[in-house]
Design a protein around this nucleic acid. Structure first.
Lengths: 219, 219
DNA sequence: TGGATTATTATGTCTAGACATAATATCGGA
DNA sequence: TCCGATATTATGTCTAGACATAATAATCCA
């Protein structure tokens, strides 16, 4: 086990066990280096990792302190649906219901199938100015999400997760009664300041949920 | 701007612009160090950050490569409801509907109010063996989530987010029609291998959604 | 030619310093 | 006593090396 990992484990253990409580000051990096018999750079690396994990706060001159545990911040993986379904070992199919150019935006609407059953109804707008190649793509064969992943890198994204009853259009497309509770994922993606795409995916609630894990230990 | 940040920005820019494509090999750390006029340790730090952000893969002997962009992994903040409502500047209140000891578990059921309106219906099980102090707590005044945050640190958590129609009990508690689409958050928390608590929160869909952001740039 | 050994290479981790920076504590003067 | 200048301290970033480790490439022998 590396010094780095050992120091992190020692401090995290002290925090978890309650030996160090939120607000407590940790020994200085010099002291920790002397105590663990390693250099300060190594201690600093461990402290940076603990800080990233949200376990400690670092303040110049003042020192490092055990952070308040206040938020569960979990890493949510939002995979491309084709990859998700493939990873489940199921058959994936995309069906495009509509594609129309609407001024500066290309609107695409369609369904994602898992083993022949509709899993999600997708409504998407693609900003053609940011993704000029999209104008030449029919999206009949390949889902726009999959195509975009391969054609343009994003720099930031915003996700919104909500629940709502299926509208009549969504319900008909998914083959469920209108008003059925559905998980909805809305995602907007940018490349720098330029908008790339905005997508709304309505999931059949009985076939999909989202899972997020939280492990404070940094890698 | 530090060398670290400058190197990261340069490489990220090359990836975003398409100058470097997924699978491409980056220059070796020695070459990057020479090119940027800094030491290899600094380059290595920048590469570690890019790796954490999922932009590159690193393989010994082989070098570093631009990673495939395949998953949107976003950081989901799951705050304590009391803190969330306080942050919105609204009044928070907890109402305990039931508290009963059921073998090794303490079951608590209640409502979270925002400005006097029920926001979430909570059903929780606390493992008394892991949190012995909980046996002496009534949870009449303080919500179990808030209490647990202050009394026991967790080491890992698993979140599940789904949508479902409100059951008659949930609907009555929340004051919405039965079957109303609700966002549901289920969270299980452990301390090491010991289970701490499992909670299910049913949210009034019209008052709550979850937002997650994704910024690949490491801090 | 095939397979095992050896050399090479790039990352992974670490050291023992250095200077920069920001926040606090202390002290001197008005 | 209050205020401002100064000293101190802990983190933040960096250097120029070092050795470890793992994966590939080259080599040598059967």
């Amino acid at each position: 086990m590396s010094f780095d990992a050992r120091i992190r484990a020692a401090i995290e253990g002290d925090i978890r066990s309650g030996a160090l409580r939120p607000g407590d000051r940790l020994p200085s990096e010099h002291e920790l280096a002397a105590h663990h018999g390693c250099s300060r750079a190594t201690v600093s690396k461990a402290m940076a990792a603990l800080h990233r994990a949200g376990l400690i706060e670092r303040r110049r001159k003042a020192g490092s302190f055990v952070a308040d545990q206040h938020v569960h911040s979990a890493v949510l993986e939002v995979p491309d649906l084709e990859q998700l379904i493939a990873a489940r070992g199921h058959a994936y199919r995309w069906h495009c219901r509509e594609r129309r150019q609407d001024g500066p935006e290309l609107h695409v609407e369609g369904l994602h199938f898992e083993n022949g059953t509709p899993l999600a109804f997708e409504t998407r707008a693609i900003t053609v100015a940011t993704v000029p190649d999209a104008a030449a793509e029919s999206f009949a064969e390949v889902a726009p999400g999959t195509w975009l992943l391969a054609h343009i890198p994003w720099t930031s994204a915003r996700h919104r997760i909500l629940a709502a009853g299926a509208t009549s259009v969504e319900a008909e497309a998914l083959g469920v009664p209108a008003g059925t509770a559905c998980l909805i994922l809305e995602r907007s993606t940018w490349r720098g300041d330029a908008p790339v795409t905005t997508v709304r995916q309505v999931f059949r609630g009985d076939m999909f949920d989202m899972v997020a894990h939280f492990e404070p230990s940094p890698r």
